[in-house]
Each structure stands twice: as structure tokens, then as C-alpha cells.
């Protein structure tokens, strides 16, 4: 006999009573986005307003070109670029000299065999093979090769048909008729 048991209903929590974490995060994101948008607008406006002043400061009238701030800054930038290239070259030389030594020192202290033994290479390879649809690739490449071969055979057959027709019909029929494949009088293009 089946006994019916009444299960008490669970009270659903009142979501509106307190803000959950997602709401707080969304609110913060919205505040950040609005602030950034306001900053951009302010920066654009300030730049537009200050543009004439900046232009005058950058290229002041009645000042020789060689003494204008823009010219001076350009000269500094040129020299800075030269120095930067030189520093990069020297750092490169240092790295070339030191990196192998450091790497050797580090590698001497690392037991690579132990690391490799820790890694489940079979599982990794299985995962990679599972990710690559090898049968599909083999199927596709085989199909393409077969298709190309069949096309080649067919085109060869057509060319041979035309050659045989030309060879046999001329002596047999004096009254030359149009070849069934008169296109064969033209060079046959390679199958594509």
C-alpha cells in the first residue's frame, strides 16, 4: 500500500531584501563605464578649447623657427631615438652574452627527466589527437587525390579518343566530316 507523505514546501529567499553580489558588480561596472565616458568627453572639450593656446605655445609667432618649442622638442626626440637604439643594441649584446650562461646554470639545477616523468605525455597526445579530426583529414586528402587522378584519366581518355578518331577516319573516309570532338584539333588544356 502506498503511503502519501506530505513534503513541506521550502521558503524561497526574498531576493529584494538584500542586494546580491552580481548586482553590486554590475553597478560598479556601470559606474566605471560612465566615469570613463565622462572623462573622454571632458578631455575632448578641454583639448578643443585649449587647441589655439597650445598652437601658440608650440609655435609662438615672432620667434625664430629654430628656437620654437616644437623644433626643440623634435631635436630632443631625434637624439633620444638615437640613444634608444644604442641602448637596445647594448642590452641585446648583454643578453646574448649572459642568457646562455644563466640558462645553463638554471638547467643544471633542474631535473628535466623528473619533470617529464611527472607529465602524462600519453594523455596529452591522446587529447591532441582527439582534438584533431585525423580521419576527416585523411579522408579529404585521399578523396582529393583520387578525384584528381580520375580527372586525369578521363581527360587522357578524351584525348586518346580524339587522336584515334583522327588517325582512323582520314584514311577510311575521304569525305572529311567534322570530328565528334572537333575541339580536339585545338590543344587540350590540362585538367584542373
Amino acid at each position: 500500500m502506498t503511503e502519501v507523505v506530505q513534503v513541506p514546501r521550502r521558503e524561497t529567499p526574498d531576493d529584494s531584501a538584500r542586494p546580491d553580489r552580481q548586482q553590486v558588480v554590475d553597478a560598479v561596472v556601470e559606474i566605471v563605464v560612465e566615469s570613463m565616458a565622462a572623462t573622454v568627453v571632458l578631455a575632448r572639450t578641454a583639448s578643443r578649447i585649449a587647441a589655439p593656446v597650445t598652437r601658440v605655445v608650440w609655435r609662438p609667432p615672432l620667434v625664430p623657427t629654430s628656437l620654437q618649442p616644437a623644433t626643440l622638442v623634435a631635436g630632443l626626440a631625434r637624439r633620444g631615438a638615437t640613444h634608444r637604439a644604442e641602448v637596445e643594441r647594448q642590452v641585446g649584446l648583454l643578453l646574448d652574452a649572459w642568457t646562455p650562461m644563466i640558462a645553463d646554470t638554471v638547467l643544471q639545477r633542474i631535473d628535466l627527466d623528473a619533470i617529464i616523468h611527472r607529465v602524462d605525455l600519453v594523455a596529452v597526445v591522446d587529447e591532441v589527437i582527439a582534438g584533431v579530426d585525423l580521419p576527416a583529414i585523411i579522408r579529404e586528402s585521399t578523396g582529393t587525390v583520387a578525384s584528381e587522378t580520375v580527372r586525369g584519366v578521363r581527360m587522357t581518355g578524351i584525348t586518346a579518343d580524339d587522336a584515334i578518331s583522327r588517325t582512323l577516319r582520314r584514311p577510311l573516309f575521304r569525305r572529311t566530316r567534322t570530328s565528334p570532338a572537333a575541339g580536339a584539333t585545338e590543344p587540350m588544356p590540362e585538367p584542373t
Binding site: 580527372r151 581527360m155 570532338a181 575541339g183 587540350m188 588544356p189 585538367p191 584542373t192
Partner: peptide, 8 residues
């Protein structure tokens, strides 16, 4: 059908 075979 390749271009060369179409006329045939």
C-alpha cells in the same frame, strides 16, 4: 567538371 572537359 573542369573547363577543358565541359565542351565534351
Amino acid at each position: 567538371v573542369p573547363q577543358g572537359a565541359r565542351p565534351y
